[in-house]
Design a protein around this nucleic acid. Structure first.
Lengths: 217, 217
DNA sequence: CTGCATCCACTTTGATACTG
DNA sequence: CAGTATCAAAGTGGATGCAG
């Protein structure tokens, strides 16, 4: 298995040799949210061929980015997780996602949105400068899925599922059936006030201020 | 020419659809330094097949990232330049390069280093926090190539060729013939004092402090 | 010369089927 | 569940051709 390289001694070229192949960064993205089983990755990466997923995981493992763990005790099986090196990709990944978000047009028919995408979007949209010193927490409920965002003294933690602490505000945007549950759609809907709130309603404005969707230039 | 997409409405997926294909980001990297002719790109991207370069340029043009300009007056011919959207990729590109730099091993036989790579390395290594309020300028001369770095009140401008202003310090690292002129090699050599200086010698320490090579975790 | 287009061998990807 | 096997289609790398 010889790696095709770019023949340049350069950080960018190296990065692309390691995670530049098709699907690789999207796999890392899904693992950034939390460790995953093979089948979870398969469904989360709507459309990835199974042989490509298997190949990428092996390459990423060899590159020291992903770790293949055989889960212990109760829920045994195989779990893929990021290594420290893999986690250190997050700033670059968010930076790319932020740029890509400015280049998003309208959803194409067939496009899907995954809860992982929502978590990533939250981290992408997060404006540290707007959150300095802030402590607050939210849950967003959309079509059965729940994601949380907890800011502690300006530091953001996000993830799937309910918040680890009682959230300051629970937001349930009222999406029409034909609306895609994409982050920017959710933000737009909430901005229009089409949202059910439970908790401190003032936190809605705070949320909209701290998590700003990047727009096209 | 239908684009292969990832079927996800997600900023990262969008970014990868636009610049995720092989060689694409390296082309953008070279154009970030300055606009280029086709043949300059070809030699700067050591090893890129000509048909792939042509294809990528068309795709990047269609994506609104690259502009094909027919050069006017004296030096006529075709010139490729980044659009505003293309330039807005720089933070993401530097972020990826910074990560990749931590994953660089030793140079492989056959690896090349381009002046563009050096400029990119300067921007990658730049530590804004160390440069707050600073005003200074340098030139580095290596094997006939010259790159400059000018910091004005903490803001960095780098490029190929001599500095637009009289540089505060000219540095000529003494590389052995068998040493690759890679950024990290140059830094190591200069840190060891193997460098010829012309100008304010105290700016050497400043330089080494402000432009720190990212190291492996 | 520059700026590609064409052709061809080879590799990677996508889609589907199948197995321990 | 966690992959491997198979095969067609698309993409890549390398060489060459050719018009302005």
């Amino acid at each position: 298995m010889k790696r095709r390289d770019f023949g340049q001694y350069c950080g960018l070229a190296r990065a692309l040799e390691l995670v530049g192949e098709r699907w690789a960064l999207l796999i890392v993205r899904n693992l950034i949210v939390r460790p995953r089983r093979y089948s979870e990755l398969q469904t989360g990466l709507s459309g990835i061929p199974t042989n490509v997923l298997a190949t990428r995981l092996k390459e990423l493992e060899q590159a020291g980015i992903v770790e293949r763990q055989v889960a212990p005790a109760p829920a045994r099986g195989v779990v893929y997780a990021l290594t420290e090196v893999g986690r250190s990709l997050e700033p670059a990944l968010l930076s790319l996602a932020r740029w890509g978000a400015t280049q998003l047009g309208d959803p194409q028919p067939g496009d899907v949105v995954t809860p992982e995408g929502a978590v990533l979007s939250l981290r992408t949209a997060f404006q540290p400068s707007q959150a300095a010193g802030l402590t607050a927490s939210w849950e967003i409920h959309v079509r059965g899925a729940v994601v949380h965002a907890v800011i502690t003294d300006g530091e953001l933690v996000t993830g799937l599922g309910p918040a680890p602490v009682e959230p300051g505000l629970v937001m349930v945007p009222q999406l029409a059936d034909d609306q895609l549950a994409a982050y920017r759609v959710i933000i737009a809907v909430m901005r229009d006030g089409l949202v059910e709130l439970r908790g401190d309603r003032e936190l809605l404005d705070t949320f909209l201020r701290v998590f700003t969707v990047p727009l096209a230039a």
